[in-house]
Design a protein around this nucleic acid. Structure first.
Ligand SMILES: [Mn+2]
Ligand SMILES: [Mn+2]
Ligand SMILES: [Mn+2]
Ligand SMILES: [Mn+2]
Lengths: 241, 241
DNA sequence: ATTAATTTTTAGTCTTGTCTAAAAATATGT
DNA sequence: ACATATTTTTAGACAAGACTAAAAATTAAT
């Protein structure tokens, strides 16, 4: 069952002993994100788009990662993380989210400023560092965007019954529990409109013609939110009138 | 006076806009350290030894750094940092020492554990991050090994009248103000013997045959310290009996 | 002032990660 | 089923950063 690996003239009996490059780590992380909870197969073009890279570069790297038994790769059929690969991906995500939490909680960064810096910090290699940071932050469960932080052992506790705001029905009352962190400008927009974690909103009306939505905040303020916005907010159902 | 630079098809009118690689940053930092306060010329072989690299690799890189106007390099005559190069080197050292301070002060690392991690963290690129960290740590003046932390503008306030313990004379009373951070095992040894920053010691005797020294701690305990050890401790003179 | 030893540079090779262009496989539409 | 469109892979190139081996320059020793 043990896998042996011959790299650069050295024999490794455990992949963990071999340090991955930033690039390799980014591939694993992105495959994890694209696979979703059901571990879909990820296509070459998909990965290329997300990594701002070309399909041919992806193919090259997938072959290398398959060689190292971090992904299962079938020509023309896309790829999947192996258990090893997934384990590594989750640890990188743990580091990313803990660093984002540190930046917001301790250094007073805005939630729209932390992702790019965390993209660098997630590659720092020290288990003791990340576990100490986790302790220092008092073992946070979610990052500044509401995403769950994997624990030391890689266990991720997903939010139960989280749906997109765009999927809610008129008259329901919901609480914002996460936001998509991809765009800093969206995060700034959300904060300006007080659409932050923990806020409750009521869906007043949904418009079919452009898939937008009218909502009310707790203070009675009403807002129109575009399709793009409501697809990037995660909510928890509270009640319905 | 302005320098223009053509790199990878782009024209830069300010070197700072161009991101350096980790490798380039390590070269600049090491040249700074080897130059000393008097800005000696640094030889290729010296640099190769410190960077665990070969002389030929050094030559290649020096030519590249000279092209970017970060070092002044004269064939067969070694190199020197330009003002630009020195400015960058100092900022990397600032990051290194602030991160070391963070690890010791906030995450409770030992002083012998932090250097290797700081070697990674010093390359994180974010001015806002490092200035926030500086504030969070309350603008520390020295790192865990007693080395001065450059400020935001690159100003370094060196300790006045610091000498090596090996250079002191018998019967003087001195205070430990810095230790060489290069060897984790030396740091562990020093801590075990309570030879930490702020401690005062008296020189009892110096032995010519092996350049070792006998010293007394404040509690009366006496110790023999080897040449190697006393050359790696920086002290401040207090008094003489 | 020559010769010998040491240091530094050049020339050529390798690996990693990327790219473009062309070929091959797969998916789609009628 | 067959032609067309799309996706993916291969082939070949390049830049960065490192290495070895050999050549050139500098320094040290007689
Ligand atoms: Mn992020
Ligand atoms: Mn996040
Ligand atoms: Mn250090
Ligand atoms: Mn230090």
């Amino acid at each position: 069952m043990k896998a042996y690996l011959f790299i650069k003239g050295f024999l490794f009996d455990n992949i963990m002993e071999y340090q991955l490059t930033h690039s390799e780590e980014n591939y694993l992380k992105e495959i994890f994100h694209l696979s979703g909870v059901d571990a879909f197969r990820v296509s070459t073009n998909n990965l290329a788009a997300r990594l701002n890279s070309k399909a041919s570069s992806i193919t090259d790297m997938l072959q290398k990662l398959a060689e190292k038994e971090l992904v299962s790769y079938v020509k023309y059929k896309g790829c999947n993380l192996t258990d090893k690969g997934e384990g590594i991906a989750v640890q990188i995500i743990r580091k990313h989210r803990l660093w984002e939490t540190f930046l917001v909680m301790k250094l007073n960064f805005g939630w729209e400023e932390v992702h790019d810096i965390a993209e660098q910090l997630e590659h720092i290699d020290s288990t003791k560092l990340i576990d100490s940071l986790d302790h220092f932050l008092d073992y946070p469960k979610f990052d500044p965007h509401g995403d769950p932080i994997p624990d030391k052992d890689g266990k991720i506790t997903y939010r139960k019954a989280k749906i997109k705001l765009s999927e809610t029905v008129v008259n329901s009352l919901v609480e914002i529990v996460s936001v998509n962190e991809d765009s800093a400008s969206l995060l700034t927009y959300l904060e300006k409109n007080n659409l932050v974690l923990g806020i409750c909103i009521r869906i007043i009306e949904k418009y079919e013609f452009d898939k937008s939505m009218r909502i009310a905040l707790e203070n009675g303020n009403e807002l129109n939110l575009s399709k793009k916005v409501i697809e990037n907010i995660g909510v928890k159902f509270i009640s319905k009138t």
